[in-house]
Amino acid sequence: MFSFCSDPETLGTVGWFSCYLTTGVHFSFYISFFKVLLLLAITAPVALSFGFLGAMAARSHFAPLRWLGKFYIAIVRGIPDIAFFMFFVIALDQGFEWVRHKVLCPDWDQPIRQGADFLVCSSAKLPLGSSPEWIHQTYGFFLAVITFAIVFGAFAANVLYGGMRAVPHPQLETAEAYGMSRRQTFWRVLVPQMWVYALPGLSNLWMVLIKATPLLFLLGVEDIVYWARELGGTKTPKFTAYPHGDWRMWYFLFLLVFYLGFTRISEIVLERLMVRFTHGQATTGGEKQRKAGGAIT
């Protein structure tokens, strides 16, 4: 990076570190922070909508849909996320390719499973074999988002389901008395009010989501813990210009600071959000705000 990096005299000095910390592989490390943040930013709303659908299904009056919703919540919550990640991405990928294969290559006469091999016609492959590497990477990222969203969607569904049930029943009865239809009651009365009850659970879920990111590597996304392990491991002079001993501790310390800072910021933001949602609600918190003058901060 810098001109003095080739000078052996700099070894062990500030200069050495400025060279060491700007190698290409360190940039991959820095980029992985953005990857993780991007993944969180995309996954959170997707998981929330999965959760919303799950919760809606679970309280549906149509029995099969209700069973499906409850089944989704119970099963996915019952499985440790790590076990899920170990096989689910491959299953998802094969599922997509199988569907495309059936649609795109109806006259394919060879079996899809040949021994251990999973073979689909080349136009059904995802991504296509001729696509550049970045498309493969993006596709892998997309699979990771879906997997995360399915797992955390089940937890979100559980929280939202609880939140919907916590909305005081007289509110719904009042809505009915005003002649609102079931659909109107749901969207105009229940949904706006459930957030205040669901938010503590959802913010906890967000914290869990942040702390599940070290498992991203299992999904084929090179996350910060992967790079910290890789960079911190012992490096012998034969394979690098920057040999060092086992420095994993320092890298992990850095990650610890990052995670603590990130959760702290999240806590502050979520606390503000809670204050906003509490406004005008018939809860102890809302009552306190009313007495204090009701200013939204």
Partner: peptide, 18 residues
């Protein structure tokens, strides 16, 4: 509480072993 809730268990195991 902040320290243990704010960091991944993965990293806690690593430091504990160390």
């Amino acid at each position: 509480i902040f320290l243990f809730r704010g960091s991944p268990l993965f990293i806690q195991f690593f430091f504990a072993y160390f």
